[in-house]
Design a protein around this nucleic acid. Structure first.
Lengths: 211, 211, 211, 211
DNA sequence: CATGAATGAGCTTTCATTCAT
DNA sequence: AATGAATGAAAGCTCATTCAT
């Protein structure tokens, strides 16, 4: 069997094992057995547990970014881009729960080298969303005075919320990718829209609700 | 040194070690050394790594619920209760990052017995928030037709967003508890408010933004 | 509670625990807990696991010898003395299975110091039986030419058989002390009697059985 | 070194160590050191202390049964088969004192799973002896009315006596296999023969000896 | 008469990793 | 392209034993 194919199998097994057991609790034995090869071969190709895990992070990062990228329509309005991107994101994380676990749960909590690796991808997503929100804001009627920092913060929060929702959707049976995306848009975008329309919540801002 | 005090020290050390290393990677040796006692004493008092971890979860759960409970003003309007509760929540998680890591990151990913333990506390918080949102909705002018399921879903999403934001705030330097709470209110409540006013986002709902 | 009484309780618990778990597998913790006292008290009274075990051996040895001694009728014919002694022996071992386990199974297999201790008692029993068999032989009609060595060997074998039968009787439900003793007499004494009458088994000695 | 050979070495060392120290007191460290390998290799091949011990029991059981089986002459008269079988039995137990200790002393006293394992072999031996005694009885002149239960009991007792004698022979220097077998035949067979001839010992049955 | 607090040493077991082939 | 054989290091856990009170 050619090396590239074997490596793919190894990464598949590793993502599955890491995703289900966690980094420390996963064992090289189990991964090798899952592939059906001997441990030395895994070491020959991937060198160490650490490098194997990093390879997993990289592959899953690229796969996720590719899925989201493939999901957006280049020329569409910004909010439609966001919507389709979110659907693609939730669809991908739902189809690859172990890969998502590697990126979201494990990479950020298993030591610095791994966290750094996944932060790259996250930053790329945040930058992309920042661009979308900024564009929307600029295009908007009566564009509100959102600073660049505000926009960046919104993007961070939106990505954070999406990540959280992805984990939640994976844990909650019966939640489709579209529903997760709709929830986020329902929940966040209307708020975003109002924010962008210049509204801010204060202790009194919702008083009308209680009249 | 009396047993109760020692146990407290052990839980402190355990929360810190688990929070920073993860469940599997944390070693009983390290915890014992952090306390300044021998390992057998830790086993004498807490029985096993598993039970020690569960004791951590329980203590941190109770501390978090107590902090939030102490933060809300009983007689205040629902949205004010939510606001003060959120501030208390973010303040507590910011002051106890390792405790929060134990509850949020570790307990849910280190096997069933732990997940079950932390789910109890989460359910209590969700129920509490469900009550608040329901009350707000009922009191609201022109109360929208939110079903009980809608309210429960909103509460789930709000708690999930708060959890995600707490993790984000802990990772992001310079974000105070008040800012985190304000972000969530800005971000979610306005959306909530609109939802409760009967608005839903659709592909066309934000079209005006782009005019 | 007076010391003597406490020590008795400790030996009771120790015999039970050693008998059921074996010397190595028995733990001082379990023994102390069984008595309902703290471990230091056990050490204060019995000094160490080794000394505790030796104390068990001594007590059970004495109890066994006392039981057998109390069972024999001093003036009776030798074979009757043997019979009643055996009944007493089997009755005692059946009533004290853990004590018997300590003497028979454990003391001889848990290191030299213990084996030496139990050998004393065994030797006393063998000597007693040697005397009985020798007396019987001397008294016998047409006394056979049994050497002292022969007699000693027979006594060894008889004691060994009794010990083995005791273990077997303890493992086999529904075997009373009398039945065990009768089995041994049926099985051994007739052979002994014939031996003492000068008969020896050879390949041809039982040929008549096969005619 | 090939695995099969290593496993054999490990079982050799384990039988020796278990036989001399007992199950609990034996340490995997000592066994590994005796083989001249590291502990993990022992675990790789034999999985656990428990499985290692069971493997010892199985191997020694099979070896013992094989030795006895190889010792008997198929076509010979029943009592001659018994005689040669006993000689083989005592020769084997004398040459493998540790193996015999594993089967006789340890396996039956170190917990259920082990006892069950050795009981299988014992039952096979008892069944074999039952067959021999039954055959002898049936062939005998003026065959006595021994019930099947009687025969089974005699076989049990004979095997028990042989086991006890084997332990005794191993402890007593200068006792050859033939002498041990002769002792048992002297001691038991004459009794058996008489039993089968319908005689039973009673308090008066040996009175003539004392005249 | 009795114990709560504490530990050094050892146990079984697992794991990431390598070497010779 | 692949593996059988092997290990140093460390983990979770237990135990006999002691000291201060």
């Amino acid at each position: 069997m050619p090396r590239a194919e074997r490596e793919r199998q190894m990464l598949d097994a590793a993502v599955r094992t890491f995703g289900q057991r966690g980094y420390s609790a996963a064992s090289m034995d189990e991964i090798a057995e899952l592939v059906g090869v001997s441990k030395p071969l895994v070491y020959l190709y991937l060198n160490s547990k650490e490098e194997l895990f990093i390879a997993c992070i990289r592959r899953e990062s690229e796969a996720l970014v590719a899925a989201v990228t493939a999901g957006v329509e280049p020329g569409a309005p910004a909010d439609r881009q966001l919507w389709t991107g979110l659907v693609a994101f939730f669809a991908h994380t739902a189809e690859n729960p172990d890969g998502w676990a590697v990126l979201h749960r494990l990479a950020r909590t298993s030591g610095e080298p791994f966290a750094a690796e996944v932060t790259k991808m996250r930053d790329a997503l945040v930058a992309y969303v920042t661009g979308l929100i900024g564009a929307t804001a600029r295009e908007a009627h009566g564009a509100p005075d959102l600073s660049d920092g505000d926009v960046a913060g919104l993007a961070q929060a939106l990505v954070g919320a999406a990540e959280s929702l992805a984990a939640w959707a994976n844990e909650t049976p019966g939640v489709s990718a579209k529903e997760a995306a709709a929830t986020l848009m329902n929940f966040a975008w209307t708020g975003l829209g109002n924010l962008m329309a210049g509204e801010r919540w204060t202790a009194k801002a919702t008083a009308f609700l209680l009249t």
